[in-house]
């Protein structure tokens, strides 16, 4: 269903690109890297966190889009995600991503079976409500966006066994992004209301009827090293609904724009303890292609 919707969206886009109306749409108008990269939940942003930037290289006079593939290789698990996102007029962003959390050999130790894999669909929508991260260099006011992410994870019986209240949930967030151009610095802060365990891969809520939203924070800071290269770090707090000592996440990353059609983000991510297995640190790699 979800895949069909995103295919439909792409179909509509290709129709638009082939029509005469497309003459008025101007692609690739944004400056390099200013569309951000794609986060693990499919939204435009950094690696682990969502930003206020609208995906794609379109300006307010066009439409942009991206497909991405992301891998986080951890000692006891593997995280994979792929998806597509579309930015409309640098105002609205729609995204779909499918995440896979592969327990690999650890699945057997957890009694789930070797290679047991959770899959989660994440549908996202984001609207830029004020400001411009890049142009408004004479004011401290950042670019601000609000958004939501509808998440649906499979393996409901396992989620229920862990004490999760639901296999579906919606995150709501507010993001603020600012490029401090005179300092060559990029900052982002996001506040997220969520019930998600491990961003939803282990369901929503916890034992004892724990089903309340909590406010979590995502912070990113980066330095522009060149037009093509942003190097930085991120920190993301998470709730601990399941009582499995869920840790905050952090990473160090380098996002490199080969051109406006291709960018690579590589990093080192520390996802802490996941389902009792400690020290889940490893390589973060994400490829993004688009326009």
């Amino acid at each position: 269903m979800v895949v069909r919707i995103s295919l439909l969206a792409l179909g509509v886009l290709s129709l638009m690109a082939g029509s005469s109306a497309a003459d008025e749409l101007r692609p690739l108008g944004k400056l390099l890297l200013t569309g951000g990269v794609t986060s693990v939940e499919g939204a435009g942003g950094g690696g682990l966190s969502t930003w206020a930037t609208i995906t794609g290289y379109e300006t307010r006079d066009g439409i942009g889009g991206n497909v991405h593939g992301t891998l986080v290789a951890l000692p006891d698990y593997q995280f994979r995600a792929y998806g597509a996102s579309v930015g409309f007029y640098d105002r609205i962003e729609l995204s779909y991503t499918r995440q896979a959390f592969d327990t690999q050999g650890t699945g057997a130790k957890l009694g789930l079976g070797k290679g047991f894999t959770f899959h989660q669909d994440v549908l996202g929508a984001k609207v830029r409500v004020l400001g411009d991260a890049v142009y408004n260099q004479d004011t401290w006011v950042p670019q601000v966006a609000v958004g939501l992410q509808y998440k649906n994870v499979d393996k409901a019986p396992v989620i229920a066994f862990l004490g999760g209240q639901d296999d579906k949930g919606v995150d709501y967030y507010v993001s603020a992004t600012k490029v401090l151009l005179a300092e060559s610095v990029v900052l982002n802060g996001t506040v997220r209301a969520t019930k998600a365990n491990q961003t939803g891969l282990l369901g929503f809520g916890g034992p004892g009827g724990k089903d309340d939203y909590t406010l979590q924070f995502e912070g990113s800071a980066g330095v522009l090293v060149s037009k093509r290269l942003l190097v930085g770090g991120e920190y993301r707090t998470k709730p601990n609904n399941l009582g499995l000592k869920e840790d905050d996440w952090w990473d160090l990353f380098a996002a490199y724009a080969v051109n406006k059609n291709l960018s690579v983000t590589a990093g080192y991510a520390d996802l802490g303890t996941i389902a009792t297995f400690k020290g889940q640190r490893g390589l973060y790699l994400s490829l993004q292609a688009g326009f």
Partner: peptide, 17 residues
């Protein structure tokens, strides 16, 4: 230098308005 370029661009950027 890239950082000096950005310092200058920061002066020009608000002209977008």
């Amino acid at each position: 230098g890239f950082r000096d370029q950005n310092r200058f661009l920061a002066k020009l950027a608000p002209m977008q308005r």
